[in-house]
């Protein structure tokens, strides 16, 4: 699957961090800071991958993902990035079990953690 990577986080510095890491690996990156904008982006174009903040000011990150799945089933691959949840958080486990997200990345993370979350294909 082609297209840029979408980074969704309401904290501008978090977008800056992820953008820097991904660009250094040659990825094209689009950043947005709200759930609504994320929904718009996901509705209108294909993304290779999505890094989604769990808690956005207007929506819950998982709800954005649900919305995207409902609109274009099977096209969105998401890793949830959050300082709010922890690794074996029941909410995270359930989201993974439901195939809503394909992974979880806890803040703070190393650059290789972030890159490892990307699919190899």
């Amino acid at each position: 699957m082609n297209g840029p990577i979408l980074v969704v986080d309401d904290e501008p510095d978090m977008c800056w961090v992820m953008e820097c890491i991904l660009r250094s690996q040659g990825f094209e990156v689009v950043t947005v800071d709200s759930g609504e904008e994320a929904c718009n982006q996901l509705a209108n174009r294909d993304f290779f991958f999505v890094f989604m903040d769990a808690k956005l000011p207007d929506m819950d990150g998982l709800d954005v993902v649900r919305h995207a799945h409902a609109q274009r089933p099977g096209t969105v691959r998401v890793v949830l990035v959050s300082g709010y949840h922890y690794h074996d958080d029941p909410v995270i486990r359930q989201a993974i079990d439901e195939n809503l997200i394909c992974g979880f990345l806890a803040k703070p993370f190393t650059h290789s953690d972030l890159l490892k979350a990307l699919p190899t294909s």
Binding site: E11, D13, M14, W16, V17, C20, I21, K55, S82, G83, Y84, A106, K107, P108, F109, T110, H111
Partner: peptide
């Protein structure tokens, strides 16, 4: 947790 881990994550990466 959310509030503190964001700046921590930025520092860590920077």
């Amino acid at each position: 947790a959310h509030e503190i881990r964001n700046p921590l994550a930025v520092c860590y990466s920077a």
